Computed example of a mutant assay.
Amino acid sequence: MKIIRSKEFTGSRAWEALDIANMNGITTRLHWTDQPYRWHINDGQEVFVVLDGQVQMHYRENGIEHSAQLNSGDIFYAGAGTEHVAHPQGVARILVVESEGSE
């Protein structure tokens, strides 16, 4: 049993993660960041939940780039093969659920 106060989690570097759970190869991690990630494609599906802050999510579908503003409480679902990159607007805390070993 554990209780995690997500707003208290602060990393010493961008995209630092706190491992919360691994359930049959599906990981749940809390990330702290103040810097963009990089364009990537996950090995499988990803659920990306903004817990605190704002994130500009860029993604490509059929070779066309799109972006969406994600605010606290918003959820981004990336299906397998969805190329995407997150750009926090200041400090953000993000819950990510994905296959173990995904980027």
Rank of each mutant, 00 (worst) to 15 (best):
A17H: 07
A17T: 09
L18S: 04
D19V: 08
I20V: 14
I20G: 00
I20P: 00
I20C: 01
A21Q: 07
N22H: 03
M23P: 00
G25W: 10
I26F: 03
T27A: 02
T27K: 01
T28C: 10
T28H: 01
T28E: 02
R29I: 04
R29A: 06
L30P: 01
H31E: 05
H31C: 07
W32K: 02
T33V: 09
T33M: 04
D34R: 01
D34K: 03
D34S: 10
D34V: 03
Q35F: 13
Q35I: 05
P36W: 07
P36L: 06
Y37W: 12
Y37D: 12
W39H: 11
H40N: 06
H40W: 08
I41K: 06
N42T: 04
D43M: 14
G44N: 11
Q45E: 15
Q45M: 14
E46K: 02
V47D: 04
F48I: 02
F48G: 00
F48T: 03
F48E: 00
V50T: 01
L51M: 11
L51F: 05
L51V: 06
D52F: 00
D52A: 05
G53R: 01
Q54Y: 00
Q54C: 07
V55F: 07
V55A: 00
Q56G: 01
Q56S: 08
M57D: 05
H58R: 06
H58D: 13
Y59H: 08
R60N: 00
E61H: 06
N62P: 05
N62S: 10
G63F: 05
G63E: 05
G63V: 03
I64M: 06
I64L: 07
E65D: 12
E65T: 05
S67P: 00
S67N: 11
A68P: 01
A68Q: 14
A68Y: 10
A68L: 15
Q69K: 13
Q69I: 13
Q69V: 10
N71S: 11
N71L: 08
N71V: 03
S72V: 03
G73D: 05
D74P: 02
D74F: 02
D74C: 06
I75M: 13
I75H: 04
F76S: 03
F76P: 01
F76E: 02
F76G: 01
F76I: 02
Y77K: 04
Y77H: 11
Y77L: 13
A78K: 03
A78N: 09
A78R: 03
G79W: 05
G79H: 12
A80P: 15
A80G: 12
G81D: 13
G81P: 12
G81K: 08
G81I: 14
T82M: 15
T82S: 07
E83V: 09
E83R: 04
H84W: 07
H84E: 04
A86P: 13
H87R: 11
H87Y: 15
P88S: 12
P88M: 12
P88I: 11
Q89I: 15
G90F: 15
G90P: 14
V91F: 13
V91W: 08
A92V: 11
A92Y: 04
A92G: 11
R93E: 14
R93A: 09
I94V: 15
V96S: 07
V97A: 10
